[in-house]
Nucleic acid binder design. Sequence first.
DNA 1: AGAAGTGATGCATTTTTTGCACCACTCTAG
DNA 2: CTAGAGTGGTGCAAAAAATGCATCACTTCT
Lengths: 298, 298
Amino acid sequence: MKHLQDFAYIEAVMQAGSIRKAADDMNITASALNRRIQRFEEEFGSEIFERLPRGVRLNPAGEMLVQHFRAQVSDLRRVQSQVADLSGIRRGHVSVACSQALIPYFMPEQIARYRVSHPGVTFSVSVRDREAAERDLSTFRSDLALVFEPILLVDFEVLMSAPQTICVLMRDDHPLAGQSVLRLRDCLDHPHVVPTRQYGVRHLLDVAAARGTRAIAPVVEADSFDFMRHYVIHENAIAFQIPIGLRLWPDSGMVALPLSSRDVPSGNLLLGQMRGRTLPVASARFAQSLRLALEAIA
Amino acid sequence: MKHLQDFAYIEAVMQAGSIRKAADDMNITASALNRRIQRFEEEFGSEIFERLPRGVRLNPAGEMLVQHFRAQVSDLRRVQSQVADLSGIRRGHVSVACSQALIPYFMPEQIARYRVSHPGVTFSVSVRDREAAERDLSTFRSDLALVFEPILLVDFEVLMSAPQTICVLMRDDHPLAGQSVLRLRDCLDHPHVVPTRQYGVRHLLDVAAARGTRAIAPVVEADSFDFMRHYVIHENAIAFQIPIGLRLWPDSGMVALPLSSRDVPSGNLLLGQMRGRTLPVASARFAQSLRLALEAIA
DNA sequence: AGAAGTGATGCATTTTTTGCACCACTCTAG
DNA sequence: CTAGAGTGGTGCAAAAAATGCATCACTTCT
């Protein structure tokens, strides 16, 4: 879009940290880029960048402006999407940031199912911890976020909530495998692997452990649930995961048992968008589809 | 703002109904304007105007686009206003659409009072009936609207509400002048002047009259409260107005008496903005100032 | 049938943007 | 302390883009 070219340049400069580097990235001369920015600042009525001896950096005015432009670009896409929709085109693009737990089963299933009836819609999926997911929303990098126990920044508008009880994953020959519900203290008696602190599962475990006397003493700490799931096969340890990230068939040699709600409260899987934003049709429809799917789970 | 020039042209064409007329308005050649629009439509990915034999008209896509652009311009002003504010400039512009009743006393007082502490802030005031006021909000022509009994479209977000009992205005030698509260049927026995149907006062009277047996039979119907106020001096008739539009001093020869709430319910004076919009600092602050003033009245 | 509208288009002209060379300046490495 | 490699800023000529003019094809109303 031609009239947003200045923004593209501004964003490039912001990202590169210097006009010359940005000019190089954008295949343009530094002088031309420099003058574009000067001209824009003059029209805008205020400087956008601080001139430092080693480059430039957005000043507060610039940060507000960039946020404005991002919202603007996002809204323009929404309009284009709606225009395409009213000519019956049913196409568009949906970008989703989601927690790791949703990567192996839930998201692929949902997206594939949606694309059966909307083959013109394309997707981008980003794995993000709960903090990064919310940042993606507020910078308009993602339309939707599906996150377990987010920090809930002000920009996060909840579209749907689904409770998830943390489960304990282990081999079926593990001593605890016979029970139906597990107490946290029993789990901590056995070698356990836990996610790193940025994850909601770990956060809930930390809070729960702090209430009791037993501390979490992981034999392995990892930021990949995929890794943890495979690790417990080798050292007969236990791992933690939410049900939506698990799919155990009878002969897999693994079992997953829920943690007692007396010890660890259920967390929530939240579907959200940037607060106040009107989503493009494709994203809004896919969000609705996710809502139905999450309702079916709960 | 340079990057919104296309929008200025598009709006001009929309307003003029033809490219040539718009080109004339904008001091540009029709061919140049024509090509700008063609280029824009190509970049946008869809036609914006219907080409009719006698000119052009926005198509649905174009209407969505114009709405988008208006929101965009409005938001850019908000950003500029905030930028100016953070450098301590305390300037800006506030546009208000308001009912006629507020024109003689309330708005001048409020604006003058606000400008004492914020001399850098400028104002534009438009008299609008309740329907036009809401349209002004949703097309971003006004930041705020202060209207008596609006129709309440979806785009109208209420910021403050103040009840207003309809008063009957007459000369102090009028037969009814001695009462303290008036019944509607008594009023209808005397020659009365009423506002035209677009006004909230008339609407409330119509509804009230429909409940009883007495019909409204105005000797004069007018769309100017100023006219009506002066008319009752000449024919010793009665007129209707809400208290905020009245200021009677003892020796003026006029009295205003409230209508009984048994006959005519109180209407509401509503301060509102475009739903979901973030107002520029100046407008938001002035709205806050109006809220306090309205609270003091109620 | 003709006049007066409309939007579209090819081509020369004008305006704007860009690229190049260079300046003034600040840091850092030797 | 100096030399070099960064940085943003600027004058001037070349390139690119937007504009104006003349004209076409078409519809509507007189």
